[in-house]
């Protein structure tokens, strides 16, 4: 037997590496499911952490508003500027407010806001909890006979679930205002006419499912951020990894949830 073949025999094969990766992925999904089930169990049990929930809602909701608003404004401006030439070539420029508002409210507003939210809030939660884990602050809560899961995880997940829909409504409003500004760059439309055309194109079935799905987006971002932070390992290296994977998996979860929501909505409309 040559040395090379001896080394090859000792090294794991590509197949076993793939099997281990699949196994690890399933284990991760299993643990995340258990973590989520624990959330539902703990959220119903007293004691209810209203003060911590308010504090988290302030941090997660109010402090994210400027970033979400700026993104929304730019989104409205860009979408309008990009759409105008296509509509103009059909002589359908008057459809611009209706078309842009429909795009923003049904899809672009919720998804873009949720992705920005996953980047800002998901990474923040992941890094904060991971750093608390590394510095033994979570252990300190546990040995005091308190329930760190309820205080740290339940409050944050509730705050993300409740705050993202509010932020999306705000982002949609700012975005429509951006669209109004963009139309006025090359044309002239009154504020009243713009909004009456924008809202004429929207029905209840456009708004309601779009808002409902943002609760699920917020929940996904919160639970993934908390899971990654709460179960962080490997010291300070783990803090970076937790923040990073909270954003990556959180963003992916937003897209997957959106795809399911669109399929479900199409069944009823």
């Amino acid at each position: 037997m040559t040395n090379k073949s001896a080394i090859d025999e000792g090294a794991p094969s590509d197949q076993s590496v793939s099997i281990n990766a699949v196994k690890a992925a399933f284990e991760e999904i299993g643990q995340m499911t258990r973590f989520t089930m624990r959330f539902f169990k703990e959220v119903l049990k007293p004691r209810y952490e209203f003060r911590a929930l308010l504090k988290q809602s302030y941090i997660i909701g109010y402090k994210s508003f400027p970033l979400i608003a700026i993104t929304g404004l730019i989104m409205g401006l860009v979408l309008t500027i990009q759409t105008r030439p296509t509509l103009a070539s059909f002589g359908a420029e008057s459809w611009l407010p209706g078309m842009v508002s429909l795009s923003i409210i049904r899809e672009i507003g919720p998804v873009i806001a949720a992705l920005i939210f996953a980047g800002k809030v998901g990474s923040g939660i992941g890094a904060e909890l991971a750093s608390m884990k590394v510095t033994e602050q979570i252990d300190a809560m546990e040995v005091s006979g308190l329930n760190p899961f309820k205080y740290l995880v339940v409050t944050r997940v509730l705050a993300t679930t409740l705050m993202l829909p509010v932020l999306v409504i705000a982002a949609d409003a700012v975005s429509l205002f951006g669209s109004y500004l963009a139309i006025n760059l090359k044309g002239d439309i009154s504020f009243q006419l713009f909004f009456s055309q924008a809202f004429a194109a929207i029905t209840f079935t456009d708004v309601f499912p779009a808002i409902i799905k943002t609760f699920f987006f917020g929940f996904s971002v919160g639970i993934i951020g908390c899971y990654k932070g709460y179960n962080s390992v490997k010291g300070t290296e783990g803090v970076g990894a937790a923040a990073n994977s909270a954003v990556v998996i959180g963003s992916l979860a937003v897209f997957i949830t959106d795809m399911i929501a669109v399929q479900l909505t199409s069944l009823f409309t």
Partner: peptide, 18 residues
């Protein structure tokens, strides 16, 4: 948890909530 309230634990880093 009831029993833990009778046991104090001073961590190496003190683990104050920062």
């Amino acid at each position: 948890n009831v029993l833990r309230k009778k046991v104090g634990f001073l961590f190496q880093s003190a683990a104050l909530y920062d």
